[in-house]
Design a protein around this nucleic acid. Structure first.
Ligand SMILES: [Mn+2]
Ligand SMILES: [Mn+2]
Ligand SMILES: [Mn+2]
Ligand SMILES: [Mn+2]
Lengths: 239, 239
DNA sequence: CAACATTTTTAGGTTAGCCTAAACTTAGGT
DNA sequence: ACCTAAGTTTAGGCTAACCTAAAAATGTTG
């Protein structure tokens, strides 16, 4: 149905560039509205590629009409590039959800497998796993999955765990990192989408953030506490 | 467990070469014992690549110790190359089985998807779908699936449908082609692994082979009748 | 057994996607 | 406004995997 028709089918590298431009341009907030232009350096860092190589690829993507690249001032997705990026992201997140729910992968091990497979599945495969999953709106990390029409789900408002008030409760909505170590650690602590956390009294300090998860109390380093997005819960849900 | 450790991870192209050398060297019988040496030309035809390019790749595979290539006299797999080829074939056939049984693909549509995915799944993925399937010994076409230890299942003796005697019954064991048109046609006629066929009286003629499948009688072109492998059934199973 | 058609290899070329090193542009601090 | 560090682009190179065209080896057949 929605498969984009492009003159040239895109390579794995090109698809990854477009996806990363989208993720970086929406600044880690998960909103996926491409606002800012993305710098060569940021792409290079994120993709573990040298800046000179990034420039070369941006030139090619620009010739194909997928990005607009103004020399020395960064790159933005065109309308077409944005759609391709959403399509790749849909593949990635559907695959993550399928690996987790159908094949029993841990939510912290799905990313690497999805990173490769996203480029190699057919539209038929996409359709069948979406069907099997019941057309989910979010992946196992709480990231939104673009629909088959590439529309994004409306997300409930959320805030970083690190910004909860002392004594406040939050429902974990998203864990916004692909860092393997961070995912492993948070998985071990039980901090995953759907979990309930309480910000302890005097919870904020220079060493990090003190929270309760189930029976356990933890001191989360600030960088970890910023990756976790929660939806505040009124005290009536405090149990 | 069994994943082969090679100095260099192989490319998609290299894996496909090794797999094709294995399939061609066992001469379409499905036995997968690499007997004959494979010619540059046959590989070029099968893979839709020019002979000059094949020579180049064989030289590289030879340097990596995966094949033995004697100039002008064809190529054979080494022990290592044989194991890699079996590993790729295991991926291919497990994926075909999974697409068919878990995701509802028709048995005639699984090949193209498996051809790509075979190179991009992890050993973890292989293990999980094998588990889900209950460690199957054959794929939806009836082709044998190497075990995790790369051992091949012992196949019941079978013969080409075209060689059944007049009036004899056969159980379809294998449909030995990847040709899309042939698969579509045979699927439509109900000639698939597990089906029962009867060779009609006076069934052999120059136009092909006359058989009964269920209530229907067909005149199968000879080339199709040779792709279908059957295990002869005694008359007691004739119902 | 020689001549020729077929098969295979060699030589040289292309494209994609990466690299390093050097040159250039921009922006920030004084 | 200038100087410099940081960021970016340009120039030149590399490897993988294909290609075409021409040369060489093989084997078939009259
Ligand atoms: Mn990827
Ligand atoms: Mn995710
Ligand atoms: Mn393949
Ligand atoms: Mn098969």
């Amino acid at each position: 149905m929605n498969q984009l028709i492009l003159k040239t089918p895109l390579s794995e590298a090109q698809e990854d560039y477009l996806k990363q431009i989208l993720l970086l341009s929406s600044g880690g907030t998960g909103s996926l509205e491409p606002t800012l232009a993305v710098s060569t350096q940021d792409l290079a860092d994120e993709m573990q590629i040298k800046p000179a190589s990034v420039t070369g690829m941006l030139k090619k993507l620009s010739e194909h009409g997928l990005v607009e690249h103004e020399a020395y001032r960064g790159v933005r997705l065109t309308a077409t590039g944005y759609k391709v990026a959403l399509e790749v992201l849909r593949h990635h997140r559907l695959i993550e959800a399928y690996l987790h729910q159908a094949l029993g992968y841990g939510w912290e091990e799905v990313h690497a497998e999805a990173e490769r497979l996203e480029h190699h599945i057919s539209e038929a495969f996409e359709a069948r796993i979406a069907e099997w999953l019941g057309h989910p709106s979010h992946d196992p990390h709480g990231d939104p999955i673009p629909s088959a029409q590439l529309e994004l789900p409306q997300d409930a408002p959320s805030q970083r765990l690190s910004s909860l008030e002392d004594g406040e409760y939050g429902l974990v909505m998203r864990v916004a990192t692909q860092d393997q170590d961070a995912l492993n650690l948070l998985a071990r602590l039980g901090i995953r989408p759907g979990a309930k956390v309480e910000m302890l009294m005097l919870g904020h300090s220079v060493e990090g953030t003190r929270v309760r998860v189930g029976e356990q109390r933890y001191l989360l380093p600030t960088n970890l506490a910023q990756m976790v997005w929660v939806s505040p819960l009124g005290d009536e849900y405090a149990g």
